[in-house]
Nucleic acid binder design. Structure first.
Lengths: 185, 185
DNA sequence: TTAATCATGTAACACGTTACATGATTGC
DNA sequence: GCAATCATGTAACGTGTTACATGATTAA
C-alpha cells in the first residue's frame, strides 16, 4: 500500500532517478520492502501527475538517458501527513501472510522426512540471512557521511529488528526440529 | 499465492463450506494467513472448475442454504505436489513487506515525539497480541479430539513461532525506545 | 567472454480488498 | 433493541509480478 510513501521518503533525502531509488532500497531495506523497476517507474509517473514530484530528463552520452525526480512541497506535505497516521500499519505488522508457515501448518499431510527437510532448509536460509546482516549495516554506514545522523539512526533500528527476529526464527526452527523428531508420527 | 493450497489443506481434513474454512482459518492461523469471504468463494469456484474439488448444495430451512466442498483425488495430488516443492517459500519467509518498519525507516522525517509515539503504540499492540496467544492455543486444543495428533502438532508449531517472534518484537521495541530517547535529535 | 551496471518503459496477468446485496435466528 | 452468527455471492478497484524490449560500458 505504501510504495508511494517509500518513494517520497527516499526523494526527501535528495533528487534521484528511479534506478537510484531502487538501488538504495535494495541496499538498505530489501528485507522489509521489495520493489521492481516496472512498479517504481509506473508509480513515479502517477505521483508526478498528482503533483507530488517533478522530473527532469538528463541526456547522457556514455550511459543511457535518465530522469531525475525531485519531491515538491505537495509531496512533502503528503509524506508528513501519512507519517502522522500510523495506526493501521502498527496493527497490521503483527499479522503478516507467511507462505512458509502455511507449509508448516499443512505439514501433517506429509511424513516426518518431508517435515524435517522443510525445517532444515529454513534453518539454512536463516543462517545465510544472519550472515548478510553485516552487509546491510555496512551499506547504511556508507551513507552516514551523506545524510543527517537521524536518517541512519532510523535505518539501523530497522536492521536491529532484523537481527532479533532472525535470531528468534533460528531458535524456533531448532526447537521445531527437536519436536518433530520426538513427536511426529 | 497459495490460498488455493490453504483451502485444499483444510478440505483434506473433512468436507466443509467456505464459511467453515474461513472460521477455521480465523481461529487457528489468522496471524499468518488472512482471508476474506469474497476471495474464498471465488477461489473455491475456480478450484472446482479445475477438478480439485466437488461441491454439494444443501437446502436448509432455519438457516441460509449452503454449499459443502470436498477435495477430489486430483486436489489431493495437487496439494502433495505443492508440499513437495517448498524452496521458494522458505526463502521468501525472511523478506516480508512490513509497512510498520517502513515507517520506522522513514521516521527521520518526523520529530522525537512522533517517533516515540510510533514505537509506544507498537509496544501496546505487541502486548495485546501476546495476550491473545492463549486463545489461539485453546482453539487448536478444541480440535485435538477431532483430528489426528499430527495435525494439531503442526498447528502448535506455528503458534510457538508466534510466541517467539512476538517476544523478540517486544524486546526490540523496548530497546528502540531507549535508543530514540537517548540518541534521536 | 560473461556478467554486472546503468537506465527506462509497456502490457498482460495474478492476487487481494472494499463495497454492495440479502436476511432469518439467537444471545445479551 | 443490538450485535453476532450463519451463509453466499458480484463488481470495481488497487497493488504487485512477469515477460518483453533495448543496448552501451566496464570489470573479472
Amino acid at each position: 500500500m505504501s510504495l508511494k510513501h517509500g518513494l517520497l521518503g527516499m526523494l526527501s533525502l535528495e533528487p534521484m532517478t528511479g534506478y537510484d531509488i531502487n538501488k538504495e532500497f535494495r541496499e538498505t531495506m530489501q528485507y522489509i520492502w521489495q520493489t521492481k523497476y516496472s512498479q517504481i517507474y509506473n508509480e513515479l509517473d502517477r505521483m508526478e501527475q498528482k503533483g507530488w514530484l517533478t522530473s527532469e530528463r538528463i541526456i547522457q552520452e556514455e550511459k543511457p538517458n535518465k530522469r531525475i525526480y525531485a519531491i515538491t512541497e505537495n509531496g512533502k506535505t503528503e509524506l508528513l501527513d501519512w507519517l502522522s497516521k500510523p495506526e493501521d500499519d502498527v496493527k497490521i505488522a503483527l499479522t503478516q501472510k507467511n507462505a512458509f508457515l502455511l507449509r508448516v501448518f499443512l505439514a501433517w499431510n506429509t511424513n516426518k522426512e518431508a517435515a524435517l527437510k522443510l525445517l532444515h532448509s529454513f534453518r539454512e536460509v536463516c543462517l545465510a540471512r544472519i550472515a548478510e546482516q553485516d552487509d546491510v549495516r555496512q551499506a547504511i554506514a556508507r551513507d552516514e557521511s551523506d545524510y543527517d545522523r537521524k536518517v541512519t539512526l532510523c535505518w539501523h533500528l530497522v536492521t536491529l529488528h532484523g537481527d532479533l527476529i532472525l535470531q528468534s526464527r533460528l531458535d524456533w526452527v531448532e526447537k521445531a526440529i527437536e519436536i518433530i523428531n520426538e513427536e511426529f508420527e
